[in-house]
Computed example of a mutant assay.
Amino acid sequence: MPKSYTGSVATDQALAGFTGGAVSTICLHPLDLIKTRFQVNAAQGAPRIGGTLRSFQQIYKSEGFRHGLYRGLTPNFAGATVSWGLYFYLYAGIKSSMPVDPTTKRLGPTQHMAASMIGGALTAVVTNPFWVIKTRMCTTQKTAPGAYQSLFGGLTSLVRTEGVKGLYRGMIPALFGVSHGAIQFMAYEQLKYWRQEVKEKRWEKQFLEEIHSKATSDSVSMDAKTIEKLRKARLLEKKHDWETLSTIEYLCMAASSKVAATVATYPYQVLRSRLQMMTNPQGEVIYTGVMDCIRKIKRSEGILGFYKGVAPNVIRVLPGTCITFLVYETVSAWCRKHARYGLDEEQRI
């Protein structure tokens, strides 16, 4: 049984993901609100340079800090923490059930992508109601007629007026978005493996140079079997050195993987936000479905219409992802260090 703090590695991962999502959401909610408003604004053209800062200032002046920039924080917080916690729990659990490569003793990129997509799809189904409420709260002022005043009040009103079906507005684009997490985590895991392998190979080189230097200076020769035995013993001692990466390394890999996934999959976020705002203030249906939404955006707003809000989103996801993954890795490491259950493989030998 691997070392864990709670008794389950998957639960440890869920705790780490929950904490990372919570810290990131609280810090960066205003950028999420601005991004969402850009996404649903069909009348406005592609935002100009500096549009994010101007929107920030305008919202702050007209609506205030708490009821303006932080409107919709509760559903966003609930959705983000449940999403990250549940996702990491499922992701870790699914990975643990997969067979590793007998040569590398690791999972391959296809397996990471499969685990991420399955975990992401299940998470999307559970959390979609939170995102519907968050979108509607972020795109309406608190004083607007019919505006949701809270997460619970929004859920109650939504079910009463639109039924259970209303909770799953934008579900199809959300499932498209599973590819976002799959690309992100596949890239993140492979970057981690790549960096660990670089550090391991560097250690192997230093080890061989040390053995050669010692044999030359002491005039003592060692056969291949003795060197291999010594290498394995040192390997167990030093394995932690390259498996544990630095904070900067984690941040660079998290940011790189997130930007790649965001650029590749961003249009689904615009589609999801538009579909979650199914009616205009006059109560008329704007989009009848995903394909209708795609056609109307392309016809009236062009290709750039699918990338509305991408600037505040990139500004948000870079520090957001760095915060989330840094907290996630820190809490994961803390859980391993203070493990109360199980033993590492090398401790059982």
Rank of each mutant, 00 (worst) to 15 (best):
R37L: 00
A114I: 15
K308I: 00
Y188L: 15
I183A: 03
G305A: 09
T103K: 15
R195I: 02
K35Q: 02
V82E: 08
V285L: 09
T161M: 13
A339F: 03
D218G: 02
K134T: 01
T104G: 11
A92E: 09
R106C: 08
T104W: 01
E210L: 07
A311W: 00
R202Y: 12
A255K: 08
L33Q: 00
V164Q: 04
T25Q: 03
L304C: 10
A46P: 05
I183D: 12
A260E: 05
H240L: 01
F77K: 04
T247K: 15
S150M: 05
Q184R: 13
N313T: 02
G170D: 09
T330P: 09
Q111N: 05
V285T: 12
M253F: 06
A78S: 01
T156D: 14
A174P: 11
W194Y: 07
W203K: 12
P319C: 07
W334A: 01
S179N: 14
I26A: 01
G51A: 01
Y91R: 09
E209T: 06
L191W: 05
L122W: 05
K337H: 09
S221H: 14
W131S: 13
S273I: 07
K3I: 07
K35A: 06
A224V: 09
P109C: 06
L31E: 02
I248G: 02
Y168I: 10
V198G: 03
V198K: 15
G163R: 13
